[in-house]
């Protein structure tokens, strides 16, 4: 299988996984990455096994793209004892550091300084880099400034990835953030930055590969802005505020369809093959749901465990 086809299949798995969960009445409070799959998948294609990925609370795509077991992710999202976090973290805090997924943290911008610390630990142990995904909403927070400053001064091996879907819940970017493009935030810290089409998984991957090489080579931090679009509302409990015309235009930029067309045009996979992969992805999502459903919830009596 070609690298382009692998990217396609990972995005298909994420899409199928989230859509399967979205259809569940008992899915709980979730933040989906529907439409934004290419960002996590493209970034993870540039990371190696010694690296660590941190994300915001929009975490499902990142966890799956990083290779965390979908059964354990689904179990965690449904609050089951067999989840990655024993059912204690949920969507906002998915984590499996042993798989290079240091994890999600659901405080907007709250993962940035943590990621810099992870990067420092990795650099002092002599291997691996940290990558940190965050939304454009985090770009108005002071933590980003503090993190970029220290990371630049200390030349930390840190890739900052802004998954810019254009909205902080309902607030459009123009009403909240002055810098334009957001990648320009990196300039005063003299770190390399790229702003790419976040709906094009290969563009994301290529930029990530280039920036990761800089970071891994000891050049210090780098900044990657991926201009994406989310298809669903901010969260499963948020009202839609965007006009239908805008949403339709976003849907027309579907990263999965675009990658499939690319694979077909290059002769790397035909439509039937892509459809079969999609069916596989949906079967895997259904299996993950079944496994999660069969797993036990944590005991109420365990509530004080692991508090320390």
């Amino acid at each position: 299988m070609t690298a382009a086809a692998e990217l396609l299949r990972t995005m298909q798995r994420i899409r199928a996984f989230e859509e399967a969960l979205a259809q569940r009445a008992d899915r709980g409070f979730q933040l989906f990455s529907l439409g934004q799959e290419a960002v996590a998948v493209g970034v993870c294609a540039a990371l190696g096994p010694d690296d660590q990925l941190l994300t915001s609370g929009r975490s499902i795509a990142a966890a799956l793209a990083r290779g965390v077991d979908p059964v354990a992710v689904m179990a965690e999202l449904l609050g089951k004892q067999t989840g990655t976090n024993r059912g204690r973290g949920g969507r906002g805090h998915l984590a499996q550091p042993s798989r290079g997924f240091f994890g999600a943290h659901a405080v907007v911008a709250g993962n940035l300084t943590i990621a810099a610390g992870v990067a420092l630990a990795l650099s002092m142990r002599g291997r691996g880099i940290a990558a940190c995904m965050f939304g454009d909403g985090a770009c108005g927070a002071g933590a980003l400034h503090e993190t970029m400053n220290v990371a630049a001064v200390w030349r930390l091996p840190l890739l900052l990835v802004c998954d810019n879907n254009g909205y902080s819940i309902s607030t459009p970017q123009a009403a909240a953030l002055a810098p334009q493009p957001l990648a320009a935030l990196a300039e005063p810290f003299r770190m390399p930055a790229r702003s790419v089409d976040g709906m094009d998984v290969e563009a994301v991957r290529d930029a990530a590969v280039a920036l990761v090489a800089h970071v891994r080579g000891g050049g210090g931090p780098a900044f990657l802005e991926c201009r994406s679009a989310r298809y669903a509302t901010h969260s499963t409990s948020t009202r839609e505020t965007r006009p239908d015309s805008e949403r339709a235009a976003d849907r027309a930029r579907d990263p999965i369809r675009a990658q499939q067309q690319r694979c077909e045009a290059r002769g790397e996979a035909d439509a039937a093959r892509c459809a079969a992969w999609d069916a596989e992805a949906r079967a895997a999502a259904a299996a993950a749901l079944r496994a999660a459903d069969a797993a036990p919830y944590p005991l109420a009596a365990s509530v004080l465990e692991d508090v320390r």
Partner: peptide
């Protein structure tokens, strides 16, 4: 200087970096 680190005046980053570094094995 690697183990005794002067920081900028940025308490959120100082504590956050300490937390992240500790969580990641230091």
């Amino acid at each position: 200087a690697q183990r005794v680190r002067d920081t900028p005046v940025a308490e959120a980053a100082m504590i956050g970096i300490g937390v992240g570094a500790a969580a990641a094995g230091l």
